[in-house]
Every structure is written in C-alpha cells, then in structure tokens.
Amino acid sequence: MHSLLILNGPNLNLLGTRQPEVYGAETLDMLENSCIEHAKKLGFQVQCLQSNHEGVLLDAIHAARGQHVGIVLNAGAYTHTSVALMDAIYSVEIPTVEVHLSNIHAREVFRHQSYIARAAIGQICGFGTQGYLMAIDALVQKLTQSSDVS
C-alpha cells in the first residue's frame, strides 16, 4: 500500500486551543485520525508528523524519498519564510500539496507570500481541517492520473 506523509509545522500542536475562532476546535490528534481514515478509504497509508522546528521538517521531507508517494504540508509560519523548505520539496521531487486551515490570502499581508506554493502542485486554504481531506483527495487524484501509483 502506498503511503502519504502529513506534515505539520509550528504551533499546529496547539490545534483546538489556539485561536479556535481562526483555526477551529479540532485537535491535532483528531485531525490526524481523520486523515488516516480518509486515506485508508482511498487505499493509502498515512504517516503524520508535527514539529515546531524547521530542521525536523526538512529532515522529514528528505526522509520521505522512497517511503512516501506524496506529501500534504502545512508549514505554518514557515510557509512565509522558509526557502529551505521550498528547496527541500523541489529536491525530493515528491508531489506536495500545501494546506492551511485559514485563508492566508485574506489575512495579514505578510501571510500572502508562500514559498511552499512555488514548489507544491497546489494549495488549499481556508476550509479548516476539511482542507486536509481535500488535499489528500487532490494528491491521490494527481498521483493516479500521472501513473505514479497503480
């Protein structure tokens, strides 16, 4: 069975308690379980990882090569600052979908810039935790259309 990596960046460990009016009431554990169950219905396994440290996220992207056929990435605030994460996505050549709980384009101007979007096959934002399931669907569709998975 093919595997996807669900990778979450800084502060996403605080889901459910951090600004629920912006990020919702669902916890990270609840979100990860939803992703695992959703992907399973599509015939994919999921590995989830969250870190507040950029280097850990970089290492996870590098380690994904040969282990995962796709990545769903919410880089949190690193979205707007990390050329290193963008370069890592380019380097491993694994289809990646960028996801955000809030609509980053409707928020502060500094959040409108995404380095991740330059390397990702697409971006989903503003749909809360449902966006992760949408990202999985989009990634699976892209992978099966391109014959990267059979």
Rank of each mutant, 00 (worst) to 15 (best):
M1G: 11
H2F: 13
S3G: 06
L4V: 04
L5H: 06
I6L: 15
I6C: 15
N8M: 12
P10F: 08
P10G: 05
N11L: 08
N11Y: 14
N13K: 03
L14Y: 12
T17P: 01
R18H: 04
Q19I: 07
P20Y: 04
P20Q: 08
E21M: 05
E21R: 06
V22I: 15
Y23N: 08
Y23D: 05
A25V: 11
E26F: 00
E26T: 13
M30V: 03
L31C: 05
N33V: 01
N33R: 13
N33C: 06
N33L: 13
S34D: 05
C35R: 01
I36V: 15
H38P: 09
A39E: 07
K41F: 00
F44C: 07
F44R: 02
Q45R: 11
V46F: 11
V46M: 12
V46Q: 10
Q47S: 14
L49T: 01
S51R: 01
H53C: 06
E54M: 10
L58S: 12
D59W: 03
D59Q: 12
H62L: 13
A63Q: 14
A64S: 15
G66Q: 12
Q67Y: 03
H68Q: 14
V69K: 13
V69L: 05
G70P: 10
I71L: 13
L73S: 09
N74Y: 10
A77P: 11
A77S: 14
Y78H: 13
H80E: 06
H80V: 04
H80Y: 13
L85A: 07
M86L: 13
M86T: 08
D87I: 00
A88F: 07
S91A: 15
V92D: 06
E93S: 15
I94N: 13
P95D: 07
P95I: 07
V97T: 04
E98F: 02
E98G: 05
H100G: 03
L101W: 00
S102K: 00
I104C: 01
I104Y: 01
H105D: 14
A106R: 07
E108R: 02
V109F: 11
F110V: 02
R111Q: 06
R111N: 12
Q113K: 14
Q113D: 05
S114A: 08
S114Y: 01
Y115S: 10
A119K: 04
I121G: 09
Q123W: 00
Q123N: 09
Q123E: 03
I124R: 00
G126N: 02
G128M: 02
T129R: 04
Q130L: 06
G131Y: 00
G131Q: 01
G131R: 00
Y132V: 01
L133P: 10
M134F: 15
A135Q: 04
A135G: 10
I136H: 11
D137T: 03
D137S: 12
D137Q: 05
L139W: 08
L139H: 11
V140Q: 08
Q141I: 03
T144S: 15
T144K: 11
D148L: 12
D148A: 10
V149E: 12
V149R: 11
